[in-house]
Design a protein around this nucleic acid. Structure first.
Length: 262
DNA sequence: ATGGTGGCGGTGCCA
């Protein structure tokens, strides 16, 4: 079972790249972020033609998340706990049956939080607390789950091309990193680091200042696994080549494989 | 060197 996450930075602009990648990577389940689309703007026909069922939570212009799957999915959440009426479209979650029991996949688009010292940063930290609350509920089931997405947190200085350049960035703040560690310390496994224990493993390169050409990247897209899922982890990957294609997203797909007996 | 690029929507906001 291959599970992937990809921040596509507009699903309409990226429909061609997305369908092409689905055909080559053949993930079983994918969570997408930054759709920047409402439901009626979502390229459902193109994605279904590629063999995927698609569920999405959209809004006008910003945010937006989707869950794509080759297998039947029961949607279990369209927002985190304590959602408000005009909740930004940042979370989707579904459950899939496997021979080794149910697998829940959550798709996360965590608030950026810049600039620091503003209500935006406070919202980011509060959102991380809500995510941890959801993770606790899922952990109590003692089932397999994967929380994948754009976490907008650089876990350590190894995960950023220039720690000093990002010292005042919300993605690197001690408070952001502490909240991510608290989430992981509930008992989750950072899939990329479980297998690639050293060196940069960037998942994002800014459009500006030749970041891609200079390999000025960040690792901010993560797959966090429950103990029951981590026990079945067999492989991970970062599809870096997507960043070098025409009209790319600034993020690339990140994936893991779980041996669920399928 | 305090810019730079990209997407949305039709002007600045967000990343």
């Amino acid at each position: 079972m291959k599970i992937a996450t990809w921040n596509v930075n507009s699903v309409r602009k990226r429909t061609g790249n997305l369908v092409s990648w689905l055909g080559r990577a053949k993930p079983d389940v994918v969570v997408l972020q930054e759709l920047k689309a409402q439901e009626q703007q979502f390229p459902k026909l193109e994605i279904e033609a590629a063999g995927y069922k698609a569920e999405m939570v959209g809004q006008k212009g910003f945010n937006g998340v989707a869950l794509l799957s080759l297998h039947p999915v029961e949607i279990t959440a369209r927002a985190l706990p304590d959602a408000v009426a005009d909740e930004p479209a940042r979370y989707i979650e579904g459950k899939i049956s496997t021979p080794k029991g149910p697998l829940t996949v959550g798709g996360i688009y965590l608030p950026n939080g810049n600039p620091i010292g503003t209500e935006k940063f406070a919202y980011k930290i509060a959102w991380m607390d809500r995510l941890a609350q959801r993770a606790r509920t899922l952990l109590a089931t003692e089932e397999m789950f994967v929380l994948g997405g754009d976490y907008n947190v650089i876990p350590t200085d190894v995960d950023v091309f220039s720690p000093s350049a990002f010292a005042d960035d919300a993605l690197c703040q001690p408070e952001s990193r502490r909240a991510l560690r608290s989430l992981i310390n509930l008992g989750l496994t950072d899939a990329i680091r479980a297998i690639h224990v050293e060196g940069p493993q960037y998942t994002y390169w800014d459009y500006q200042a030749g970041a891609w050409q200079k390999d000025h990247g960040l690792r901010i897209d993560h797959l966090l696994l429950s103990p029951q899922a981590a026990d079945k982890l067999t492989a991970v990957g970062i599809d870096k080549a997507e960043r070098g294609k025409p009209e790319p997203s600034d993020h690339v797909p990140v994936w893991c494989e779980l041996d669920v007996g399928a």
